[in-house]
Design a protein around this nucleic acid. Structure first.
Length: 554
RNA sequence: GGGCCUGUGGCUUAGCCUGGACAUAGCGCCGGGCUUCUAACCCGGAUGCCGGGGGUUCAAAUCCCCCCAGGCCCGCCA
């Protein structure tokens, strides 16, 4: 609905003025939409912006395509305020199940996220990747795209070789109740300590790496076993965060199926190839200072080669490739994009996010310096359970536990997704455990409140004629939802949805405090209940798209 | 040394790509509001040289240049 208005007004301005851009912006408190076209036309028309705006408002007011829209010139600004038809149409749309869904598309999208090395549990830095990725995935599906979500398993890296060395050489039995990924981290940390003491171990690790690349059956089996165990741990962590992957793609498969060898042969033929002892690309003409190494002098491939093979495979099976990667991958990500372009392959779009650190500094799995996602989940559920128990002592324990799980999940996911990805953050227990304003639970609470009103109301006849400023403001906020979904898809910035959901909850809370619903009567009660139903549905869709449970009571 | 990202009230943060009407919100602070639809809430108030300096423009938090501070990256690691 909002999108339709945007197009109609934009076209009318362009037709009337001959401008190529209608310069439409959000009207803020002045209007629903505004245009600054009068400034742009001032020079060519040799007229004051005030006069241009005034004249244009007069002409546009007569345009039949803009019926029902109030058009006013406020100084040099052209203000457009939508009328009652817009508001009632919004309400009708927002009552539909799946409000905000966009038309089905045929572009097949593959989205890769998380892809952490399987050498220890996921920590609060990794899950920023998971939550940005999973939210994007949900938004793409809502926007009508067929989508596959993948986890790229780095199963042949040095870290894994170190883990395997640890299992072969150290006292490495799994402890009572120890989760697989935590167990692997313990062995990995211990093995790294040994490596620092004894350089000879590095040679043994190198041998393991060669054996696995050459396909030595026993070594491959060991690598696979430990990596699989670690992934089992990850799956539990991700499930607790309501994050899901459709497919786990193993890096070593691209050696075994010959794809890496094939892409290396193609790379050799590029004019940028330098095939001396190593095979590398010279990408200096594109602004890259270092060599992009593809194959070692001993003939084995490096990560970059397998990654290129992986992305070529994705390009062959999908129309659009999106990767969510940490800022430490910016250089290699750009080199990958550059090389894919040189090969004539599809170029992946990469969503980068900056690091999460601890107050005492960067996280490090190797040094055992991290806050694991499991610890965060455990702690936040505990806190949420205490909170629910204080607020709803009459509920039985089982119900309180269920609510606490949803509230905890909401707090974690929202706390992470609300921040722009290009901002680096410092993990803060106090903020992560906050269930008040600008939090996931705050939005859940607004939704639960709407549910409660609707439940008490019973049946009512729908009424689409809103009257008061608060009612109309809320309806207009609801109207923005589909365009929010659209902008997340085009900008690949999920925090836009997080901000919107919070603003919608804010607007509803204000409405709630000024406009009685159940205590009003007749048509007023009907139209407010209709509005509450619309906002409840929109909040539900927003929350679910953020991967947060839209619970009915809390 | 080079490249990328960030810098917005005491703290956290939106807006920056696509320049426009008094810069968004929260925490904290001050003052109000629960016998009334769930107070995980609402209302009011104080707090901003939008890191600094130049420039472009009728107009700059937003675009360009320089500088400062912090983070990340620059490996025959992944």
């Amino acid at each position: 609905m909002l999108h339709d208005m945007y197009v109609a007004i934009g076209n009318a301005i362009k037709e009337t003025t001959g401008a190529t851009d209608a310069l439409l912006t959000d009207g803020g408190e002045h209007a629903d939409l505004a245009s600054t076209i009068a400034f742009a036309l001032a020079k060519q028309k040799k007229q004051a912006p005030l006069k241009i705006a005034r004249d244009l408002a007069e002409v546009l007011a007569k345009n039949q395509a803009l019926r029902g829209i109030t058009i006013e010139a406020d100084g040099p600004y052209l203000n457009f305020t939508f009328g009652s038809a817009y508001v009632s149409e919004t309400l009708r749309e927002a009552l539909q199940p799946g409000y905000g869904n966009l038309p089905k598309k045929s572009t097949r999208v593959v989205l890769e996220h998380t892809s952490a090395n399987p050498n220890g549990p996921l920590h609060v830095g990794h899950i920023r990747n998971s939550i940005i990725g999973d939210t994007l995935a949900r938004v793409f599906r809502k926007a009508g795209y067929p989508l596959e979500v993948q986890y790229y398993v780095n199963d042949m890296g040095r870290q894994i070789a170190i883990v395997v060395w640890g299992f072969d050489n150290l006292d490495s039995a799994q402890q009572e109740g120890e989760k697989e990924d935590a167990h692997i981290a313990r062995v990995y940390i211990e093995a790294n300590r040994e490596i620092e003491k004894d350089e000879g171990i590095t040679r043994q690790v190198n041998i393991l790496m060669q054996l696995v690349e050459n396909g030595d059956a026993a070594t491959v089996k060991k690598f696979r076993r430990e990596v699989s165990r670690c992934l089992e741990g990850f799956k539990v962590t991700l499930k607790d965060l309501n994050v899901a992957h459709d497919r786990f793609v193993w890096e070593s498969d691209f050696i075994r199926n010959g794809n890496t060898e094939r892409i290396i042969n193609k790379l050799k033929r590029l004019p940028q190839a330098r095939d001396d002892e190593t095979l590398a690309l010279d990408l200096s003409e594109f602004g890259f200072g270092n060599k992009y190494v593809i194959r070692r002098s001993d003939g084995t491939s490096v990560y970059a080669a397998r990654d290129l093979a992986f992305h070529a495979w994705k390009g062959a099976n999908f129309d659009r490739i999106i990767d969510v990667l940490g800022a430490d991958h910016k250089l290699i990500g750009s080199q990958l994009q550059c090389t894919m372009k040189l090969l004539g392959e599809k170029v992946p779009e990469i969503v980068f996010f900056e690091f999460v650190s601890l107050p005492e500094g960067s996280m490090s799995t190797r040094a055992g310096k991290f806050v694991s996602a499991d610890d965060l989940t455990t702690e936040i559920r505990k806190r949420a359970f205490e909170e629910v128990t204080v607020r709803r002592p009459e509920l039985d324990e089982e119900t309180r536990r269920t609510i606490a799980r949803s509230v905890g999940l909401a707090a974690i996911r929202y706390d992470i997704v609300k921040v722009s990805p290009e901002k680096s953050t410092v993990f803060n227990w106090k903020e992560a455990l906050d269930f008040e304003r600008q939090s996931g639970p705050y939005i859940q609470y607004a939704h639960a409140r709407a549910c409660s009103i609707l439940e008490k109301a019973g049946s009512f006849s729908e009424c689409f004629e809103l009257e008061t400023d608060q009612e109309i403001a809320l309806a207009k906020m609801i109207a923005r939802f589909p365009m929010v979904i659209e902008s997340v898809v085009t900008e690949l910035r999920p925090h836009i949805l997080a901000c919107y959901a919070r603003e919608l909850a804010d607007t509803f809370n204000t409405f709630y405090h000024f406009e009685p619903v159940l205590k009003s009567e007749g048509k007023i009660r009907d139209r407010r209940l209709t509005l509450v139903k619309a906002v409840q549905n929109t909040l539900k869709e927003s929350l679910q798209t953020l991967g947060i449970d839209a619970i009915h009571t809390m």
